[in-house]
Design a protein around this nucleic acid. Structure first.
Lengths: 182, 182
DNA sequence: GTGTTAACTTAACGATTGTTCGATAGGAGC
DNA sequence: GCTCCTATCGAACAATCGTTAAGTTAACAC
């Protein structure tokens, strides 16, 4: 989808449907034959990307045991990989969320809440077991998510850091945020 | 400035100059009498806000000694206070940075680099002295900044957390991110 | 009273926006 | 040969966009 590139470069309102069509190698009318509206282009993109994020996290957790530390490590891996591998969509979803029309926003907010709950449950269980000793679990969770989310804003695929290195850097950071003590 | 509200609600391209004028209680032409262009409205807003951030950080650091831990705590306080007290401008600057025209962007990028260097210098000095033991200072700095920056995205002034509580929550989080050991 | 200036007004400018319409080309089925 | 359907085209729609021009009002200086 070429809408991805144009939305990323110019933002939702800054991107014209003519730019998108041109980038896709389609005429204006041909684009409308395939997609009903500009809003639908954004909603479809955000939905696919958000579902991909949730699915990655869900699968990562299903492949690991019940230990909160293990689950947190799996979660960070999934999150870091997603933010890098789906960098463009991640940034569009973050920036253009507000430009979704109410129906789309409400529907997709559900997905977002689900994903955040995956983080919360791990932190809460770790605190309950006493292996995470952070004083404020909610803020620890927010800090951990924010650190991972921000990767999409600055990561340079042509830079020195591989995805695996990023995962290995961010796992200890997040473990310290939740104050993990084995 | 009413541009602040409208840019925040609709984004730069989504906000029309007519909306901004109406919100300011001005006619369209009266707005143009006071401000040369829509782009100038955004640039002025972002510049003032970014300078305020830098000034707050700078003053916080000048009021504290050379100990990296003390300096980091002062920095977190300044950052958290800024993200809450200037929440709207903070969000606009973050989201609409890309919509600054090249001249404005280049000029303001300098400010942003300066602010980031304040963080880097503290982390680097802490690592040099051995009081911060994080393995990857650059990523620790990025995580700390991201955690503080994100506050502007979710903080609710009508919610249960006061500014001072936020400061007290985020100082230990950041100290753990840089792996401070006294 | 005359001239100057600041602070607006109404009206319009050309350009671009998202979207739609009717025409048409080409292939498949019969 | 005829019909149907998919995919696309060029052209146009009304609306809105950022910006500007020209005229008006009120206050003040001298």
């Amino acid at each position: 989808m070429a809408a991805r590139e144009v939305f990323n470069e110019r933002g939702y309102h800054g991107a014209s449907i003519r730019d998108i069509a041109k980038r896709a190698g389609l005429s204006l009318s041909a684009l409308y034959y395939w997609h009903p509206s500009k809003q639908d282009l954004l909603a479809a993109l955000v939905e696919e990307s958000t579902m991909d994020y949730f699915r990655r996290c869900d699968e990562a957790l299903s492949g690991v045991g019940q230990d909160p530390a293990d689950r947190m490590r799996a979660m960070v891996r999934a999150a870091v990989e997603y933010r890098i591998e789906r960098q463009t969509e991640s940034n569009i979803a973050a920036r253009e969320w507000r430009n979704l029309e109410p129906d789309n926003r409400v529907r997709l907010d559900g997905l977002r809440v689900n994903a955040t709950k995956l983080w919360s449950d791990i932190v809460d269980e770790g605190v309950r077991q006493g292996v995470f000793r952070c004083e404020h679990p909610k803020d620890a969770r927010r800090a951990a998510q924010a650190a991972c989310n921000a990767i999409a804003q600055w990561y340079d695929p042509a830079g020195p850091l591989t995805i695996e290195e990023m995962v290995q850097h961010y796992i200890p950071i997040v473990m310290r945020i939740v104050d993990h003590r084995p």
